[in-house]
Design a protein around this nucleic acid. Structure first.
Length: 205
DNA sequence: TATACGATCACCT
DNA sequence: GGTGATCGTATAC
C-alpha cells in the first residue's frame, strides 16, 4: 500500500513512464477513494522535445514542469479538457509523464456520475476522460503527489517487460522527430487503453 | 488588443 | 472516414 516517493519520480522520464504502468492512481473525494491502475502513459522530455510544453522555454503555464519531481502538471486544452501529468527528473529540467488511461478499480459509481452515464469501458480510457472521471481540474496543477491527501500514486501490481508495448505519441502536431519517437507506453492487449487510432509502428520493448 | 491553435472527445456519415 | 465544440495561452501586431 506504499505511496511512491520523490525518488521514484526523480529519474529518467522514460524509466518513470514505463514504471508508472501498473501503479495505482488514487483520488480521494469526500472521503471516498476513486482509483485505477495506470495502463497508458506518454513521456515529454525537455526543451529539445518539440512536442513538450516546455519546447519554447519557461512560461507561467509550464512552470511546474521545471519544479521538483513528483508534482502534478495539469493543463487545460481545446477549451474544455484537462490532462494530468507527473513531473519527473531533477528540479530545473522540464519533463513530465502524461497519464493517458486507467483500469478502473475503486469508486466506479462516482466515476460514472462524473462521466454522465458513459459505459464502464469509456470512463477513464483517455487523458481528458480520466480527469473528468476523477474531477481533476486546473486547481490540481502543482499538487505534490508525495504528500497530498487528495491525489497520489500507490504501488500497484508487478509488471513483466513483455506486457509493455511502445509506440509514437498520440495527437501531437510537432515536427517529424517528435511525432515518431516511441515515447508512448501501454499494456499490450489491455481493454483499457485509449482508442485513438494511429498508424505508426508499434514495437515491444 | 487581436488572433491562431491545441498532449481531446463525442457525434456525425 | 470527418468535424464542431470552446477558451486559455502564446505570440504577433
Amino acid at each position: 500500500m506504499g505511496r511512491l516517493g520523490q525518488d521514484f519520480y526523480r529519474r529518467s522520464t522514460l524509466t518513470v513512464a514505463r514504471e508508472l504502468l501498473g501503479q495505482r492512481l488514487v483520488r480521494v473525494m469526500d472521503g471516498q477513494r476513486l482509483s485505477g491502475f495506470i495502463v497508458e502513459v506518454e513521456a515529454y522530455i525537455g526543451e529539445d522535445d518539440a512536442a513538450c510544453h516546455a519546447a519554447r522555454g519557461r512560461t507561467p503555464r509550464n512552470e511546474v514542469m521545471y519544479g521538483p519531481p513528483g508534482h502534478t502538471y495539469v493543463y487545460f486544452v481545446y477549451g474544455m479538457h484537462h490532462c494530468l501529468n507527473v513531473v519527473t527528473e531533477e528540479e530545473g529540467f522540464p519533463a513530465a509523464v502524461l497519464v493517458r488511461a486507467l483500469q478502473p478499480l475503486e469508486g466506479l459509481d462516482i466515476m460514472r456520475r462524473h462521466r454522465s452515464g458513459k459505459p464502464d469501458g469509456e470512463l477513464v480510457n483517455g487523458p481528458a476522460k480520466l480527469c473528468q472521471a476523477l474531477a481533476i481540474k486546473r486547481d490540481f496543477n502543482g499538487v505534490d503527489l508525495c504528500t497530498s491527501e487528495v491525489l497520489f500514486i500507490e504501488r500497484g501490481r508487478r509488471v513483466a517487460p513483455e506486457e509493455i508495448g511502445a509506440s509514437s505519441r498520440i495527437g501531437i502536431k510537432a515536427d517529424e522527430i517528435a511525432r515518431s519517437v516511441p515515447w508512448r507506453f501501454y499494456f499490450q492487449g489491455s481493454d483499457f487503453v485509449s482508442k485513438v487510432q494511429h498508424t505508426s509502428k508499434v514495437r515491444c520493448i
